[in-house]
């Protein structure tokens, strides 16, 4: 499987879409942090605000699925779906003598790495640097760092579930446009669930999805029970999504 991971990393490194997204998100993130830190844009009631880290308010959009799905789906579309449709290189990969399960897992690992760099690492690093400069380091208190570690640790787990979902969509559709569209629809449906659905049973189900847990990860206070529940939901969802993805890919006929 190492061979496929190395090949996937090489492809990601050579993919213009990855660099365009990384540069775009970097610029956008810096711009938002500057707007907030200079007082041009006021944000209140964000999870960071509630945790006393208002200097990091610029990170808020990057933890909302309806926003970050645009970057993840675009990355998946131009790295994964394009291989099925635009250039057909998936044929060479499937015929390369690697097991399909390994190919799928390598794609998941590298797509997740790319998505984490774009959606988590770049905004977080630019945010921490900007906030660090503006607050002279006051931001990095022990409680602040513990909160950030716990929140981003949990968020990372549920974010992996999201990249696994997008990868599954890319493998099923095998088309750039459809990958972006269906990911957007999924995020919009989940957003609608969160905001509109009040029926208790459906609400209960929704609260046990990783989508809801993406939000829960940034709660200021989280009991040990809730933390464990969130971790359990994340791990179970990830395993289930990877199992579905591997099964679909193993049965997929390559055109």
């Amino acid at each position: 499987m190492n061979n496929v991971i190395r090949a996937e990393l090489y492809k990601l490194y050579k993919n213009p879409a990855f660099w365009v997204l990384a540069a775009g998100v970097g610029a956008l993130s810096i711009f938002m942090h500057i707007l907030i830190l200079t007082g041009w844009w006021h944000m209140t009631g964000t999870p960071f605000d509630l945790a006393g880290l208002d200097g990091l308010n610029g990170l808020s959009p990057f933890i909302v699925p309806l926003f970050f799905n645009l970057f993840v789906s675009t990355l998946a579309a131009y790295t994964i779906a394009a291989e099925f449709s635009r250039n057909g290189v998936i044929k060479n990969q499937v015929m390369s003598g690697n097991k399909r399960m390994h190919i799928f897992l390598a794609k998941f690992i590298v797509l997740s790495l790319g998505a984490v760099i774009i959606v988590i690492v770049i905004p977080l690093v630019t945010g921490l640097i900007s906030a660090g400069f503006s607050s002279g380091g006051n931001l990095f208190t022990e409680s602040g760092l513990i909160y950030l570690s716990r929140a981003y640790g949990l968020y990372f787990l549920h974010f992996l579930c999201f990249t696994a979902t997008v990868l599954l969509i890319a493998v099923i559709t095998g088309e750039i446009g459809k990958t972006i569209l269906f990911t957007l629809i999924l995020s919009a449906v989940m957003f609608a669930f969160e905001k509109l659905v009040t029926v208790s049973r459906i609400r209960f189900l929704y609260e046990h999805t990783y989508f809801f847990q993406l939000d829960v990860a940034f709660n200021q206070f989280l009991s040990a029970g809730d933390l464990l529940k969130s971790i359990f939901i994340g791990i179970l969802s990830l395993l289930l999504l990877l199992y579905c993805g591997i099964t679909v890919f193993q049965r997929k006929e390559i055109q």
Partner: peptide, 21 residues
Amino acid sequence: PALFPNMTAKENLEVHRLQKG
């Protein structure tokens, strides 16, 4: 032929060399 359009011939072959080990 299934090729990466944004890569050179050598880079295309490098991808396949890596994945074939």
